[in-house]
């Protein structure tokens, strides 16, 4: 459905995306995860035809987005990181305006307002809305034309837990409708919970792609252990395997031989040792280290 073919995007001398290649299937929810400045927003702006690649091609539903921009854009609903809404009109007026811009009627407006929980505030100016309400309205705006493809950039960023749950449930409901979705997020549990596949992006390149399970299984061959020491110890001998450190403890990916070595070397200083199931955060730390 969406193919990035060796896409490079430069801003002056800065390379935001480097030979980015990925293939997102129809009906798939693809999670794009990466640290700040990895190129996530650039990638999704390219997918929406807002930016233009310096080199490479982006094919959406069989059409080159640079050549058939208008046709392709009609199929895409884009939710940027910030809601970016006009604040003077009411929620209803805003949705009606965007429905009109996409050549659609106002039939879905009430349903959408209901869906994002803004029915009661439908005729209130957007300027009076809280951040969470604006984010939900922006979500409704992005799908007002019932697009086949939806691109969400950090949809739960800065929202309170209750609103975040509502937004995630809403995205999950869209997934059931067989929509193709690109979800760009910082939150690993969000990506894990919602995504069919996840792509880890680092320094403008895809470093790993797979289902959440496949990615976690990458670390399975080296079990993850949490080791607590009775006092601070020098762990430089196994530094390369350490995922995170705490005051008197470490989390590390260790083979059975290394576990044996740790027990021999640190002996009585080991207070406890237990095996952990790898999380997407562990995978992220591993692939972006």
């Amino acid at each position: 459905m969406i193919t990035f073919d060796r896409v490079t995007k430069k801003f002056g001398e800065i390379i935001a995306l480097n030979e980015f290649t990925i293939d997102i299937k129809k009906g798939e929810l693809f999670g794009l995860v990466g640290p700040n400045g990895a190129g996530k927003t650039t990638a999704i702006r390219l997918a929406c035809g807002i930016l233009h690649p310096t080199s490479g091609k982006i094919i959406v539903d069989g059409q080159d987005i640079d050549k058939n921009s208008s046709q392709v854009k009609r199929k895409i609903g884009y939710l940027p990181e910030e809601p970016n809404l006009y604040t003077r009109p009411t929620a209803r007026e805003l949705l009606e305006y965007f429905a009109d811009l996409y050549g659609k009627g106002n039939e879905r407006i009430d349903e959408l307002l209901e869906l994002v929980g803004l029915s009661e505030r439908a005729d209130t100016p957007v300027s009076t809305f809280s951040k969470g309400m604006r984010q939900r309205l922006a979500l409704a705006r992005s799908i007002v034309h019932d697009p086949e493809i939806m691109v969400f950039d950090e949809p739960t960023m800065g929202l309170d837990p209750a609103t975040s749950v509502k937004v995630r449930d809403f995205i999950a409901s869209l997934k059931k409708e067989e929509k193709t979705i690109i979800l760009c997020t910082h939150y690993m549990e969000e990506a894990d919970m919602l995504s069919d596949r996840i792509g880890f992006l680092n320094s403008g390149r895809i470093v790993s792609v797979g289902t959440p399970l496949e990615l976690k299984n990458m670390l399975k061959k080296d079990n993850i252990y949490e080791i607590i020491f009775t006092e601070p110890v020098d762990t430089s001998g196994i530094a390369a395997h350490i995922l995170s450190r705490e005051k008197n403890g470490i989390t590390a990916t260790l083979s059975p031989q290394l576990v044996e070595m740790v027990l021999q070397e640190y002996g009585k200083k080991v207070f406890s040792i237990r095996s952990l199931t790898p999380t997407l955060t562990d995978v992220f730390l591993k692939v972006t280290e």
């Binding site: 702006r45 807002i50 208008s70 854009k73 895409i76 884009y78 910030e82 970016n84 996409y102």
Partner: peptide, 12 residues
Amino acid sequence: RTAEILLALPTR
């Protein structure tokens, strides 16, 4: 940043 939304519209 509302320009970003407009640029995503199906028009030149």
